[in-house]
Amino acid sequence: MAEMRREYILNAVIVAALFAVPLWALMAGEPFIITLATRVALLALAAVGLNIALGLGGMVSFGHALYFGIGGYAAGILAHHAFSGTPVAFGIPGTNQMLVIWAVAMGLSGLVALAVGALSLRTSGIFFIMITLAFAQMGFFFTLSWPAYGGEDGLPIFVRNQFPGVNTMLPWELFLLSFAVLLAALGLFAVLRAARFGAALMAIRQNPDRAAAVGISPFGVKLTAFVISGMLTGLAGAMMADLTRFTSPAMMAWTMSGELIVIILLGGVGRLCGPVVGAAILVGFETLFGGWTEHWQLWLGLVLLGAVLFARGGVIGLLAGREGHG
């Protein structure tokens, strides 16, 4: 129990730090640090989504970039049509309202995750990894060669989309918005994990046969988790497209799927705030080491390798000990 309390304290520190650093940057007049913190929050949001499937459900999806990209394109395409005043299709207009865009992004990612999950969950092990990869690659190559929305060149968002009461062009306000959404997603993760649904999911991960014997439908529970997971990652994609004001096929590249898994592992698989820590480490490496040496990926690779071989619990596992549950 002491370990659980330690994790609570640690989580509070992590969340407070993610708020305090950009707040300091706001005082110090360093807008780029705020942008980086927003990036951490949104990558963490995407990874919280994946953490539901991977951390709780043990489903190693190597294709979550698909939902990230679908979210990104939902934002890009709707904004594109809002900007040009042309309909998307069948007379449906574009929009620059984030709330609408988020709903569309989550709806579409959820639908695609439903289809992909229903087909992929029939397999397991390496086959599950590979089939999720295959679906993400389809999305990647489709966006790459489909000319209507920029193809390989990507799709710029000329004016950031809007949210009621928030000036999204100001880095600090956009950060607050992203931070709030991340907190909500973390809340959802905690609730799901504590609920009967979470218990069923973890029971299936550990022993599918026994779970089936006590009347849990492994397929239904896993599919539900997979869909929720895809929806959150899709939401993160839509918000990331607005942060960078750019959507491109790279959002669906297999390396993006890999990065999301890396984020989860660095922080701690299945841990509530693992994705936040992992995203901070990744962005930190990119920024700090990118400034000192052009070969920062070498160091990231070494740290990652060390983490896999010697510190499987990630940073949270190191600091808070083994997980209390699961």
């Binding site: 360093e30 807008p31 780029f32 942008t35 060149d153 990507g154 710029p156 880095p171 960078t244 004001r245 750019f246 491109s248 790279a250 959002m251 052009e294």
Partner: peptide, 20 residues
């Protein structure tokens, strides 16, 4: 700074060049 011929990277670098 190197953009590695990737548009999404160029966008991020531009942001850093302007803000930082």
């Amino acid at each position: 700074e190197d953009d590695a011929q990737r548009p999404e990277l160029a966008v991020q670098i531009a942001e850093r060049m302007i803000q930082s």
